[in-house]
């Protein structure tokens, strides 16, 4: 590994100042759970890392109206175990438990996962399905970006040079909506071959409203608008017929160990199962 310098920023202003002063050779260090493996593998050689890990209030979880505001530096494990997140947005708490292993989640952060934008990452998927917003600042101006508009492709986002992600704003789950999350991977802890996240409102056996996204298939999370439209008003036991629509919005289905047809198929199966899970949850709640 090529040696680099290290600075610990005391506040956001200092972090932005350091980013500006060092230009493209500088990188923000959050948990380092993606950055340090890359450095160990020699994939990237920064001049300086700017550690935002001890900036106060950057790891707060707050309720603001119908949304949770989660600081960018919040550890993934804190989100997974947080009572407020578990009760107000259980999809997020469940999905984040699928990230890597406990060690990764103890140190890895919400903001780091979103900016790293691995094409199979769970967090960006959940954010796209829930219509979350990201808060960014470069010190001069602040902007809010819709999760769906943030990812550009594999490991690529629309974050600008000199910008830092400060928080994510995640809508809470409305009381008559249910959730489902399904992931297929070869071993627990591996990145997903494909995963699906769903929130839905049911009327009887029918989907009255549904928001669906898949990941692992294209260059990042995809909101499945065509599938959502076809699924609305449909009975949960008739989803198999429209399963293949989940990849309508995917330009190019990735190939890995498996063919793109197989990946696309798995994405459809995960979607149906996630919706059925959501439906089961609605029936359980009606019973109790």
């Amino acid at each position: 590994m090529k040696p680099f310098e290290y600075e610990r920023a005391g506040d956001i202003g200092e972090a932005l100042e350091l980013l500006r002063a060092h230009g493209p050779g500088a990188r923000i260090l959050a948990g380092g759970q993606s950055l340090l493996p890359m450095l160990n593998l020699g994939l990237y050689e920064p001049d300086i890392l700017i550690d935002i890990g001890s900036i106060p209030r950057l790891s707060d979880i707050e309720v603001s109206g119908d949304a949770l505001v989660i600081g960018a530096m919040t550890r993934q494990r804190s989100v997974e175990l947080d009572d407020t997140v578990r009760s107000r947005q259980p999809l997020l708490a469940d999905a984040i438990g699928h990230v890597g292993n406990t060690r990764v989640r103890n140190i890895g952060t919400v903001g780091g996962s979103i900016v790293h934008n691995d094409p199979a990452a769970e967090l960006p998927l959940v954010m796209v399905v829930l219509d979350a917003n990201y808060e960014l600042t470069d010190g001069v101006s602040r902007r809010k970006v819709k999760a769906e508009d943030f990812g550009v492709g594999s490991f690529e986002t629309s974050i600008r040079e000199g910008e830092v992600l400060t928080a994510v704003e995640v809508p809470t789950l409305a009381s008559d909506w249910r959730w489902g999350f399904r992931e297929f991977s070869y071993r627990p802890g591996d990145f997903a071959v494909a995963a699906a996240a769903v929130i839905a409102r049911f009327e009887g056996n029918e989907l009255a409203e549904v928001q669906v996204g898949i990941t692992g298939v294209g260059g990042g999370p995809v909101r499945c608008a065509s599938f959502e439209e076809a699924a609305t008003g449909r009975s949960v036991d008739q989803l198999g017929e429209i399963e293949s629509l989940v990849t309508t919005e995917v330009d190019y289905v990735m190939e890995g160990l498996e063919s793109s047809e197989y990946r696309a198929h798995i994405a459809g199966v995960m979607t149906t199962r996630a919706i059925v899970d959501a439906f089961e949850r609605s029936r359980e709640d009606n019973r109790s």
Binding site: Y6, R8, G32, L36, D51, R77, T102, N106, I107
Partner: peptide
């Protein structure tokens, strides 16, 4: 693996400075 303030971490991908 080591424990940092009681929580497991992979010491190969955490900087000492962190």
């Amino acid at each position: 693996t080591v424990l940092v303030d009681g929580a497991a971490a992979s010491s190969c991908i955490v900087l000492a400075a962190q």
